[in-house]
Design a protein around this nucleic acid. Structure first.
Lengths: 312, 312
DNA sequence: CGGAGACACTTGACTAAATCAACTTAAAAG
DNA sequence: CTTTTAAGTTGATTTAGTCAAGTGTCTCCG
């Protein structure tokens, strides 16, 4: 670990450390509320796991809560002696014992659980609904990034656009292509015009838009617009870098193709630039053919524009 | 605390609790790395505070770290005995002693600090730059919302637009006005058109745009566009609800007025709707006069549009 | 099939960490 | 000027956690 780090990276490290110190204190405060109970914090953590998960063994707890095996063993023995817990030898592995709270155990845990619940609720009550929303989002983000949360069961959903989605798409595309390819603000203007024109002239019978959402965050989009009775155009395909590899791009294009076929178009066309390699791959796999290329100077760069067609 | 809570609120509470459990474990992992040192976690926390803040007293530490006064007292005595710390009686308050690490104290802390630093660095190395950025943002968000961070010294800054800002403005305005007034997607289209046209035809000699930023987040914006040689138009004024009360709206309008004056315009005009009460107040205070009102049906609602003028 | 090594616990011995309450001295409040 | 509150100390004690050695069980490899 003796990389040379940039000042920006050092700042990030400092920020994460500051957060950890902050949350250490925060957890300390939350614990205080539990101190008058008959259980220690570790005991409460163990009870929590026992109350919420089935078929736990001691080694599960050691692993998941990072406890000392000896310490836990004694702790469980105490619970058992007090009638809060039963330990039944596992059928598959005679070394292990399956742990389960008794009714008395659940009863003992309930007020603790309630206290913790109320404490968090009181904390949230101090925030506005909008702030609460942001807090939960941000916590989820942290948890996901640090690997605490499992991959969501449903990796993404497609849905129709809502107010604000078009603006979001303009925002993200502009930021992304500025960062990755150095495109200037005229690109953003173009995207905004396309988005505005789409909404303005939207013909639900002949046109459509899909938003890809993952964990409540917009991570992709695509439009199909009518160019003529025969020809539909696919526009503004984009997928967040963080959400790549889930097949979202492919899926969005497939939806467009299906829609265009269903509406009786003969051709689906699209315009892109040769630097957008990952998009190109999607179009190729979907069966699009490159029909035309032309050099142009746009977005502050020399580019090669491409028209791709798919016969439906 | 016996409100009736909605299921959505319960879900938020559950999410925050899950995060706290998660981060408890996370902190446990981070601590493990420090266990082979001669200091306990609490001692390290104390050393950290001593190394980073001047003029601390024991009671500061008791308050900020949530420690027992007796425990801390002994801990400090031990540090002092080992020559890591000096305690000098405070001049203002003879009960207090001002704490300061000696050189030996700083020396003893350095490797711990380095270890903690390297551990976080290693954690961040597992993430992509974009993910790191999001992690730091999300942590900052949590910390700010839970009140751990002090109000920023500079409440906000004004800056010129960057790629993505226009899209962001479209996004936020659409979301906001949809939520607050139920305006439909045609409003978003209008905002997108205005933003696009502004970028497209931007004349730096006669036009301008300001973005208000707070802690790295866009919280407001305004445009001045040329309507004629004599008349400038103020457009797309907006301030995030979370950033209201800081005078950002007022400041943005003032910048517009100053700019329009400086460029020799005779009149600054703007169009708004009567439901936007807080904006109206800003215009009034800035000296604008209501010159015209007309009913119209837009954005899915019956509205009263207003033109306001300011003679420069 | 048998034995080496890993694994799931348990137990004993121990220590560090934290708490509680009583106390001293000084400052602030009434 | 007295009462109350605050800052810090000290002694007694509890608790939480660690470490190492040990038992029975499983797994894997030759």
């Amino acid at each position: 670990m003796d990389h040379v780090r940039t000042p920006a990276q050092e700042e990030q490290i400092a920020a994460v450390r500051a957060f950890s110190r902050f949350y250490t204190r925060q957890i300390g405060l939350l614990e205080e509320g539990l101190y008058r109970s008959q259980f220690s914090l570790t005991e409460v953590r163990v009870l929590y796991e026992l109350a919420h998960r089935e078929g736990l063994t001691a080694s599960d707890l050691v692993r998941d809560l990072g406890l000392d095996a000896g310490y836990l063993s004694r702790l469980l023995k105490k619970f058992e002696a007090r009638g809060l817990l039963t330990r039944t030898a596992s059928v598959e592995d005679a070394r292990q014992a399956v742990l389960a709270l008794t009714d008395a155990g659940h009863e003992a845990f309930a007020p603790l659980n309630q206290a913790s619940h109320d404490q968090i609720a009181a904390m949230l009550d101090r925030l506005s609904p909008h702030e609460r929303e942001r807090l939960v989002q941000a916590m989820g983000q942290v948890q996901r990034l640090l690997g605490g949360a499992p991959e969501p069961r449903v990796p993404y959903i497609l849905r129709p656009p809502r107010p604000g989605d078009m603006g979001w798409i303009v925002h993200r595309q502009a930021v992304l292509y500025a960062a990755e390819y150095g495109w200037d603000e005229t690109f953003e203007a173009l995207v905004a015009e396309i988005a505005a024109a789409f909404v303005r002239n939207f013909d639900p019978k002949r046109e459509n838009c899909w938003i890809a959402e993952r964990e409540g965050e917009v991570v992709g989009s695509v439009l199909v617009v009518r160019q003529s009775d025969e020809v539909a155009k696919l526009r503004l395909l984009y997928v967040e870098p963080s959400a790549r590899g889930l097949g979202i791009g492919r899926r969005l294009v497939d939806e467009c193709i299906r829609f265009a076929r269903h509406k009786g178009y003969r051709t689906l066309t699209l315009w892109t630039n040769d630097v957008l390699v990952s998009a190109r791959r999607i179009y190729e796999v979907a069966g699009f053919r490159l029909v035309e290329e032309e050099r142009h100077h746009s977005f502050g760069k020399d580019l090669v524009g491409q028209n791709w067609n798919l016969d439906l």
